[in-house]
């Protein structure tokens, strides 16, 4: 019984630092998923430059270059956030310039 508990304890103990230090692939996957989701949230206000960065990130990840993939995904996320902000702002702002608003 004690031996079993000891084994479980050691296993858990070893797994904690592993979980805490997610690898570059996991970091990329999280960032990429967030960028994709934000890009989707832009709806009909998506930017082509965001799509380009997402493609570049995916391509770098396929080649195993996770540092570049992360950098591209980060840029994609920032651009996607700007496009979402644009979409929200334009929901009302368009009326200010429309003829016959």
């Amino acid at each position: 019984m004690n031996k079993a508990l000891l084994t479980i304890g050691i296993s858990l103990g070893l797994s904690v630092p592993l979980a805490a230090q997610a690898g570059p692939e996991e970091d990329f996957n999280d960032l990429f998923a967030k960028a994709q989701s934000t890009h989707k949230d832009a709806g009909t206000f998506q930017w082509t430059v965001t799509s380009d960065r997402l493609s570049a990130a995916e391509s770098a990840a396929d080649n195993g270059d996770y540092e570049k993939a992360k950098a591209m995904a980060k840029e994609a996320l920032e651009l996607a956030e700007e496009s979402v902000a644009q979409r929200k702002k334009q929901q009302e702002a368009w009326r200010n310039v429309a003829i016959g608003n």
């Binding site: 009909t44 206000f45 082509t48 430059v49 651009l79 644009q86 702002a93 368009w94 009326r95 429309a98």
Partner: peptide, 9 residues
């Protein structure tokens, strides 16, 4: 709305 909404980078 589409015609008057700003889009793109």
């Amino acid at each position: 709305e589409f015609y008057y909404s700003r889009r793109g980078q």
